[in-house]
């Protein structure tokens, strides 16, 4: 238990560092800005108490907000994503402690895609807070989601190999 918690905190520090120092500087002409830190909640074991999952998601988002000067923005996106995750269970074929690539690439990729899409939709809609240029906003959501999913899958693959 202690070892798992230590590993989890290590992952949290790593993901926040990568997000703040590397990914925040990536920007494909303003259309896509990838986020890797939601992975922290994605790999949380399904067994964790549900109210704890919500609080953790909220806290992660709030911490990111402090760094990004966007108080409330990431907190909302993470909270909504955590809430939706409560209704997602482990894949049928394998009983999983924590979601990861070992649950099957197809299942895991779909799981990441759906939750990241929800996170990004809330985040980007809330940040622009207008329905003008809706197509541009949707394009931005789609491209950012694609980038983030790619980064999260790569990071997950690296985790498995270790």
């Amino acid at each position: 238990m202690i070892r798992e918690v230590t590993r989890y905190v290590g992952l949290a520090v790593l993901l926040f560092a990568v997000q703040l120092l590397v990914l925040n500087n990536i920007n494909f002409n303003g259309y896509a800005s990838p986020y890797i830190y939601p992975m922290l909640l994605l790999v949380l074991p399904f067994g964790v108490r549900r109210w704890q999952q919500l609080l953790l998601g909220f806290a992660c988002g709030l911490l990111m907000d402090v760094f990004m000067h966007s108080l409330g923005l990431h907190a909302t996106a993470m909270l909504v994503m955590s809430f939706v995750r409560l209704f997602v269970g482990p894949s049928d074929s394998t009983r999983l402690e924590a979601p990861g690539l070992d649950g099957g690439l197809l299942w895991y990729a779909r799981y990441v895609l759906v939750l990241v899409l929800i996170h990004h939709t809330v985040l980007i809609l809330l940040a622009s807070f207008t329905l003008h240029h809706l197509w541009l906003t949707l394009l931005r959501i789609a491209l950012s989601t694609a980038c983030s999913v790619l980064f999260i899958l790569i990071a997950s693959a690296l985790r498995v190999r270790r």
Binding site: L54, F58, G61, S70, L71, A75, T76, L79
Partner: peptide, 17 residues
């Protein structure tokens, strides 16, 4: 209680924002 917690936190974060 989970739904209530969600709504309270949602209200809080949107209010902050």
């Amino acid at each position: 209680h989970v739904l209530l917690l969600f709504l309270v936190l949602l209200g809080l974060s949107l209010w902050l924002y």
